[in-house]
């Protein structure tokens, strides 16, 4: 890496490892309901005990996402939220005291239209530590990976239970962490994970030199805890986005006290997801 400073994601995982804790990584769609609320929600996530946070860029055609995140994207896009708008949430939250690492989750086309070099330069300027681009499999990510490496932004890859022979290639070049997809399908709440999950995670663990985290369908503390000793972090998206959706009337209220009530509800929900420290 050409950047001399340690990437914040690495620093946080090192710290968690020392404490025997599992990372909790919430995902939120930016601009749902508006950008000011997104800044407040990021602060609430940190206060709830999040270890790092995924800022989701709304997209017109979110292929990897289920109905909950699709709806959030549609709401945000009605406000014409752009990739650049989403990026601005990070420095604003930082200014207001947030310390955790920021990861941007975006589909590839908005990145491509901005220009790859410009995108990563802006990522750095806006204090992001990592990027997840779900529709950029390893066959297509060459140029992006080179630029990410050069700018010191971790390009975090997805790996699926069906990746099989690809696990080794994906995990061995991962930066930041490996995002393990818990089960087949799109993002969203589900009651059970892929039956071969344990074996799959063990395979990823063997191939990876960075932490491994599990996402897609994690929606409760029980699920988070059942995963806690098999991985280094759990990613919770749809369940939180749905909580935000339920709280929209409060979050959009003109009365500040009501808005605070909405934020508190989301914060309590995230706090309840945090797995207890189980790793010795």
């Amino acid at each position: 890496m050409s950047d001399n400073r340690q990437n914040l994601i690495d620093a946080v995982f090192a710290e968690l490892k020392a404490k025997g804790e599992t990372a909790l990584i919430p995902f939120m769609t930016m601009g749902d309901p508006d950008l000011a609320a997104s800044v407040e929600l990021v602060k609430a996530a940190e206060a709830a005990g999040a270890s790092m946070i995924e800022l989701g860029v709304p997209y017109s055609d979110p292929l990897a996402d289920g109905p909950v995140i699709q709806r959030a994207s549609e709401r945000a896009l009605r406000n014409r939220i752009s990739l650049l708008d989403c990026m601005k949430v990070a420095p604003e939250a930082r200014k207001q005291g947030v310390k955790l690492p920021f990861i941007l989750f975006t589909y590839f086309n908005p990145v491509l239209q901005l220009g790859l070099e410009t995108f990563f330069e802006l990522m750095k300027q806006h204090d992001f530590s990592g990027a997840i681009i779900p529709d950029l499999p390893l066959e297509e990510d060459g140029e992006v990976r080179d630029i990410a490496e050069r700018t010191g932004i971790h390009l975090i890859p997805l790996v699926a239970p069906t990746s099989e022979a690809r696990v080794e290639r994906i995990a061995s070049r991962a930066r930041g962490f490996v995002y393990c997809v818990s089960s087949l399908g799109v993002t969203g709440v589900r009651s059970s994970f892929h039956e071969g999950l344990d074996a799959f995670l063990a395979t990823v663990r063997r191939a990876a030199s960075v932490p491994i985290c599990v996402g897609f369908g994690v929606s409760s503390r029980e699920q988070a805890e059942s995963l806690a000793d098999k991985c280094d972090g759990v990613i919770v998206g749809s369940a939180i986005v749905r909580k935000v959706e339920e709280s929209l009337p409060l979050l959009q209220d003109e009365d500040e006290a009501r808005r605070s009530e909405g934020l508190a509800a989301v914060q309590a929900f995230i706090a309840d997801l945090k797995p207890r420290a189980v790793r010795a």
Partner: peptide, 19 residues
């Protein structure tokens, strides 16, 4: 790689790659 010059390719989530 399914490329017609610069066009084509396979920009899909990893969950679809194996299929």
């Amino acid at each position: 790689y399914g490329r017609f010059g610069p066009f084509g390719g396979r920009y899909v989530p990893e969950t679809l790659m194996n299929a």
